[in-house]
């Protein structure tokens, strides 16, 4: 092995404990590991029901070296607000509260309490690690599931006709100080955004695309590669929204056709050429709209 000393790319603290119960190739555990490396150990995690409720270990064990509060599915926003209040009352302002939910707990079941919390501009970092379905209960569709993707509740015969909800825009519509998308395939970007979010007061939201090999029907080793393709082909652009209005695109896409991304995954293997073409048109449209937003004059300038 070469012994040239390069700058270490990862912050040192290892706050994820091995032996956790995530599946092979789980993106959510990579996401948590990198996020906590960026935030450090002065962090409290609020976990509503999601894959991470399982990954964090069955009682009485934990796989995180930071405190975790398990909450009801719909309550992450409220519980995180409460934890924040308790910390503030006791003068522990330096402790980060990390509301960490899956797409079910963010897009669907937890949306109401999340919306309430961010509307109050609670000083909490909310994260959605998005694996595009209810994966740990056996791959059911959520409102984060992409159009036409196979799940057990959207079989080929009864496809999901609606496109994926745009969660970052919903959060931005609350005019919160910081909202961003990132992906486990871009660890430098992910760590940068968590460090940046940690320095911002008020509600912050980070949307992480996080692969699920069993749910996406991909081999576990392809997990990062396929996720990277999602960004390369503009299905999942990586950008930031400051103050709810100002868009910045962080990663220049490479113009890979959506087809390559879809063909790499079993959940899209049934798609017809027309369906792929339709998805491509949607992706192109959304990308162009994002470009327009990023090119608009900054609000307040």
């Amino acid at each position: 092995m070469s012994s040239d000393s390069r700058q270490p790319r990862l912050p040192a603290p290892e706050l994820l404990i091995s032996g956790h119960s995530a599946c092979q190739g789980c993106g959510a555990s990579v996401a948590m590991r990198l996020a906590l490396k960026a935030l450090g150990e002065q962090t409290i995690v609020v976990l509503p029901a999601c894959c991470w409720s399982i990954i964090a270990g069955a009682f009485p064990y934990t796989s995180l070296r930071v405190p975790v509060i398990h909450s009801a599915f719909e309550a992450a926003g409220a519980v995180a607000s409460g934890v924040r209040a308790a910390l503030d009352i006791t003068g522990q302002k330096n402790v980060q509260v990390l509301g960490w939910s899956g797409d079910g707990g963010t897009f669907d079941i937890g949306l109401q309490s999340l919306s309430g919390a961010v509307e109050r501009n609670e000083n909490v970092l909310f994260v959605c690690y998005d694996n595009e379905g209810y994966m740990n209960t056996g791959i059911q569709r959520s409102s984060a599931t992409p159009q036409y993707a196979w799940t057990t509740t959207t079989p080929e015969k009864y496809p999901k006709e609606t496109p994926k909800k745009n969660m970052a825009d919903i959060m931005a519509a609350h005019k919160i100080p910081y909202a961003a998308t990132t992906s486990v395939a871009f660890p430098d970007d992910l760590i940068f955004k968590f460090k940046k979010a940690a320095r911002i007061q008020g509600s912050r939201f980070i949307h992480i695309l996080s692969p699920c090999p069993p749910g996406w029907r991909i081999p576990s080793d392809q997990s990062i590669k396929v996720t990277r393709m999602a960004t390369q082909c503009n299905v999942f652009p990586i950008y930031e929204i400051e103050a709810g209005d100002n868009y910045y695109i962080n990663i220049e896409p490479e113009g890979v056709p959506v087809r390559d991304y879809l063909k790499a995954q079993g959940r899209f293997s049934h798609l017809s050429a027309e369906a792929i073409e339709q998805i491509q048109r949607r992706v192109d449209f959304e990308w162009e709209r994002l470009l327009h937003k990023a090119m608009m004059k900054r609000f307040g300038e």
Partner: peptide
């Protein structure tokens, strides 16, 4: 309110 106190490190995955 139960609190987990052990870690998953003993689980050799």
């Amino acid at each position: 309110a139960p609190i987990s106190q052990g870690t998953t490190a003993f689980i050799h995955t």
